[in-house]
Design a protein around this nucleic acid. Structure first.
Ligand SMILES: [Zn+2]
Ligand SMILES: [Zn+2]
Ligand SMILES: [Zn+2]
Ligand SMILES: [Zn+2]
Lengths: 132, 132
DNA sequence: ATAACGCTTGTTATAATATAACATTATAAT
DNA sequence: ATTATAATGTTATATTATAACAAGCGTTAT
């Protein structure tokens, strides 16, 4: 449950801190406006940092939202096996850390002869609060 | 393995036929350029059709590619439980129809008390051909 | 030391994806 | 027929993402 430490460049650190401070997934341009005061002025600077952070597995992209969250799973080294739950109402997003699930999916094989190296799973529903 | 029949409007039919004829997932603007000769001129016309077709489950959106494929799974009524394999090299995308997998995921429960209504799973790897 | 390298940065411009807003027309339900 | 619902056409704009190029910095090989 604790943050990973990696050697990051200045812009990468700034972007990562912004994402970690947020309680919700952040979109790239929302990050950009947050970091303008720190001297990051243009989209490519943000997107490059995001790309690297995703590669390193310290953040993940929620594909269906075009948004980024920091990884809270210390076992999740390189964003190769990710699962999220997304509340349709309040947009709360939680990374699912369930070893049975990840084992099941990591070992999953279909009949097409394809070798899977990576997966991303997104569940949608209503969170505990919004269900009431 | 056969196509579903639903009552579709004119634009919805045009967009759906275009997607069905394609061998690869199509992007919205690629669809738009294909259907201009049929009188569809502007993005909203395409996006509205896509939205409806996704709702109906006759097509699916590949979130990580912003692309659309037609559903070949006759059991897949409303795009509520979808899984795809995506070749990183040739971009070939296949809808995974595996009842064990869908049962497993449909019944999956984590410890957050969230009720899942829908999921989308995308596997990445190398297809049979590209593996060689 | 200095050249070469990999990596990050800064910057401008533009591409690609998606929606807002509004007027109109077709279809279905009562 | 009247009303409601869904689909269309259109213009403009918002949002997301990348191309392309110049410059800087730290490491390492010679
Ligand atoms: Zn993670
Ligand atoms: Zn919620
Ligand atoms: Zn399907
Ligand atoms: Zn392939």
């Amino acid at each position: 449950m604790k943050h990973k430490q990696v050697n990051l460049s200045k812009n990468q650190q700034i972007v990562l801190e912004t994402i970690r401070k947020a309680k919700k997934p952040l979109k790239a341009y929302s990050i950009l406006s947050s970091v303008k005061k720190k001297g990051i002025n243009a989209p490519p600077q943000v997107y490059r940092a995001l790309e690297k952070l995703v590669e390193l597995g310290v953040i993940h992209k929620i594909e269906s939202k075009n948004a980024f969250v920091d990884c809270k799973n210390s076992e999740c080294e390189t964003s190769k096996a990710t699962a999220f739950s997304i509340c349709k109402k309040c947009q709360k997003i939680t990374e699912i850390m369930n070893s049975k699930l990840s084992t099941y999916l990591t070992n999953f094989q279909d009949n097409t002869g394809m070798k899977y190296e990576k997966y991303n799973l997104e569940f949608y529903g209503l969170c505990k609060r919004c269900k009431l």
